[in-house]
């Protein structure tokens, strides 16, 4: 198989003596969606924040395209084309959609001033693709609905040619229709060869969208399985009990 897009090897991080991520290794291939599952506090968000540069690991190494990567800040992560959609969306509520989309990467005029008109035009274009109903371009994002805010956060990740996309509960705030939209987007990004880490509570979501699942419990990796090799009950067992799936049973009586 090809070189993985991302390999996180033996990652460790602790906060005040608690091992939030304890010797965890995961990988991600181009055009693949890997679901990260686990209870609250299992360490999945923490693990992913190491990759997005929000936290600095105490140990372990990250390889991007087979080469060792140094990620000490969100800026570093962006340089590796790693984009993150945070569960909190990480939007500055007082700024408009365009300012948020380009935050930290503003388009500037030759004189070095921010080019708001250009950024708004670009924002209108990408939002036209992602969420054609979106109209509030000059309002601060605090005036937007949950779904609209989510689409701004997604647009931000997609606009800058992500190779590796991290989605932390991307559908938590969304209605049925918008959730479907995100699912379609994920399919489309996969087809473009982008690798996606998807953090979710919703097992059904994960089974629908993911190729593999990595399950964490108490900061440790329970295991990583191909979705077609396991049942939802197997995965639940991994999440709740930290139990390895019984694969023999599966070959004898295929899941219904």
């Amino acid at each position: 198989m090809a070189t993985p897009l991302v390999e996180m090897r033996d990652m460790q991080i602790s906060f005040g003596g608690i091992k939030a991520v304890d010797h965890v290794s995961v990988d991600l291939y181009p055009g693949e969606v890997v679901g990260l599952l686990g209870h609250n506090g299992a360490g999945k968000s923490t693990l992913i924040k190491i990759l997005s540069g929000a936290y600095k690991a105490d140990g372990g190494e990250i390889l991007i395209n087979g080469e060792k990567a140094v990620i000490n800040s969100p800026r570093d992560a962006r340089a590796y084309n790693i984009e993150t959609i945070y569960q909190t969306l990480a939007l500055a509520d007082n700024l408009d959609a365009a300012s948020n989309l380009f935050l930290g990467r503003e388009i500037v005029t030759p004189l070095g001033f921010v080019d708001d008109d250009k950024m708004e035009a670009e924002t209108r274009e990408i939002m036209g693709r992602l969420n054609p109903n979106f109209e509030k371009f000059s309002a601060p994002v605090s005036a937007l609905s949950g779904g609209q805010r989510q689409s701004v956060a997604i647009a931000r990740a997609v606009y800058f040619d992500a190779r590796i996309l991290i989605m932390d509960e991307p559908t938590a705030a969304l209605g049925v229709h918008e959730t479907q939209m995100v699912a379609e987007l994920i399919e489309q990004l996969k087809a473009e060869g982008i690798g996606i880490f998807l953090i979710s509570h919703d097992i059904q979501d994960v089974f629908k969208l993911c190729d593999r699942v990595s399950v964490m419990k108490n900061g440790q990796l329970v295991g990583t399985e191909r979705v077609e090799d396991v049942t939802e009950d197997d995965v639940l067992g991994m999440i709740i009990l930290g139990k390895q799936p019984d694969k023999n049973r599966k070959t004898e009586e295929p899941a219904t």
Binding site: S52, P74, R78, T88, A90, L91, D93, L103, G104, R105
Partner: peptide
């Protein structure tokens, strides 16, 4: 507006 978001934006 959002110190965390600013930090995460690099």
């Amino acid at each position: 507006g959002n110190p965390d978001a600013a930090e995460l934006s690099g």
